[in-house]
């Protein structure tokens, strides 16, 4: 293995640099507001992610929620009605008005970071568009 020491060192060093890039430059976006931050905690405490995804991460029983507040034909009130009433498959978590409001604020915040999500035909186009927006 001695002869491979350098290979290992180069790989680990690149990984370190890559992590640094991911943690700082590679993942800019708007910061969360207070209401949405509370919504995020509720989202985790109720384990919504067991059935829903955000940016593709999560369970598959329900639809991806990344863009629900912005999707044509959906929106905040649409989302609110699901959260307050539940459905046959989705439990009614019996949340207070404030809690529901925070959840909506959270979903709205996530959606706002993904303003072109699922609307452009080409990923690479979308990427270029976003980096332009961010640079401005």
């Amino acid at each position: 293995m001695n002869q491979y020491r350098w290979v290992l060192a180069v790989i680990l060093l690149s990984a370190l640099l890559f992590s640094f890039y991911t943690y700082t430059a590679g993942t800019r976006g708007a910061a969360i507001n207070r209401e949405a931050a509370i919504g995020k905690i509720i989202f985790q405490n109720k384990n919504c992610i067991a059935c829903h995804q955000l940016y593709g991460l999560g369970g598959f029983m329900g639809p991806d929620l990344t863009y629900v507040c912005f999707e044509p034909g959906k929106g905040k009130e649409y989302a609110r009605s699901f959260i307050t009433n539940g459905t046959e498959k989705m439990p009614d978590f019996i949340l207070s008005k404030e809690e529901t409001g925070c959840l909506i604020a959270y979903l709205e915040y996530v959606g706002s970071t993904a303003s072109t999500y699922n609307t452009s035909a080409s990923l690479w186009e979308e990427e270029r568009f976003l980096s332009n927006v961010q640079d401005k």
């Binding site: 590679g26 976006g29 990923l123 980096s131």
Partner: peptide, 26 residues
């Protein structure tokens, strides 16, 4: 083994194609 290690460290980004992060990662 090294190829596996490189994949472990770098290929996770294929889950993030839909995330508006930098294209370097993707």
């Amino acid at each position: 083994y090294f190829l596996g290690l490189i994949n472990l460290l770098f290929n996770w980004g294929h889950h993030t194609y839909i995330v508006p992060a930098s294209s370097v990662i993707k």
